[in-house]
């Protein structure tokens, strides 16, 4: 399982065009890192510090502001992750079906559950390296630049929330992407469908919401649903009604993920091994 994930990461790192996306993720991380450094280490007037923090949705104190910088960072990184996943699905999973590499894997001493777990772990690792680990290191940076233990005591929930939200992002995105790639296989159809799935239902939901004034239509937006789930973990909502929607979002995302997982298991049938 780990060897499948390791090889998948090697594949992604060997494709030079993906370095652009990885670079974008790194640039965003450096920007947030610099913000924390600026507000904690530089002698700036307090209003300037507040403006910078507000601009990036930052507050190490969870009760001070509506948003939390770590969640904002993860949401913004998700854009890079989604684009990276859209293009890497074909390389990581689609090629196994297209070039009949599945027999190579399944005829070894592994079962289809190991294969599926390996591929999910590979996609999850990409998400982990781009969202969760940088968010955690930002949390550590903020704490390291803050004198005293009070920061760690008061904000212990932040790393827990980062891990929980990151876990959801990893699980949901990996299952969706691997399933989609197993069926569509080629890069262009995967990228188009992946983008459409994340954007089109959201647009439709927004239109229906405005037309009917029913907030529940907004649940059609999977990206927003994942953000709501993130807000559920961080305990911070932009609107009070979002708290109710978050649980529906969780149920909806869980249902779609289960369906996608079942479809994936059916696709990776051992009977396809010798064609």
């Amino acid at each position: 399982m780990i060897s499948i994930a390791r090889v998948a990461l090697i594949q992604v790192l060997r494709r030079k065009t993906y370095w652009v996306l990885l670079g974008m993720g790194l640039a965003q991380f450096i920007m947030f890192w610099s913000v924390i450094y600026a507000v904690t280490q530089l002698e700036l007037p307090q209003p300037v510090k507040q403006n910078i923090l507000r601009e990036f949705g930052f507050s190490a104190q969870m009760d001070e502001q509506r948003d939390n910088g770590y969640m904002v960072f993860m949401e913004r990184q998700s854009v890079v992750v989604m684009i990276l996943l859209a293009f890497s699905g074909s390389l990581l999973v689609g090629s196994d079906f297209r070039q009949r590499t599945l027999p190579f894997y399944l005829s070894r001493r592994i079962g289809k559950r190991h294969y599926i777990a390996g591929k999910l772990l590979a996609v999850s690792s990409l998400i982990l390296f781009l969202t969760v680990l940088p968010a955690l290191s930002l949390f550590v940076e903020y704490g390291a630049f803050t004198s005293g233990w009070s920061y760690w005591k008061e904000n212990w929930r932040i790393p827990v929330a980062v891990l929980a939200y990151g876990g959801v992002l990893c699980l949901v995105n990996s299952v969706w992407l691997v399933s989609l790639s197993a069926y569509l296989q080629r890069a262009a159809p995967i990228a188009i469908t992946w983008s459409s799935l994340l954007i089109m239902p959201g647009r439709l939901g927004e239109y229906l919401w405005k037309a009917s004034d029913n907030e529940y239509w907004r649940l059609l937006d999977p990206w927003r649903d994942m953000r709501l789930i993130g807000q559920l973990f961080f305990g911070k909502f932009r609107k009070d009604f979002d708290r109710d929607l978050a649980w529906w979002a969780l149920a909806l995302i869980a249902a779609i993920t289960i369906v996608a997982f079942v479809a994936l298991v059916r696709r990776v049938r051992a009977v396809d091994v010798v064609e």
């Binding site: 090889v7 594949q11 390389l91 070039q99 590499t101 190579f104 005829s107 001493r109 064609e275």
Partner: peptide, 21 residues
């Protein structure tokens, strides 16, 4: 199944390559 496959070496007919490796 798994134990058995550990004792067998299987060479598939198809290309079965892993890109970029």
């Amino acid at each position: 199944g798994l134990q058995l496959r550990g004792r067998i070496g299987y060479m598939p007919e198809a290309a079965a390559t892993v890109p970029l490796l």
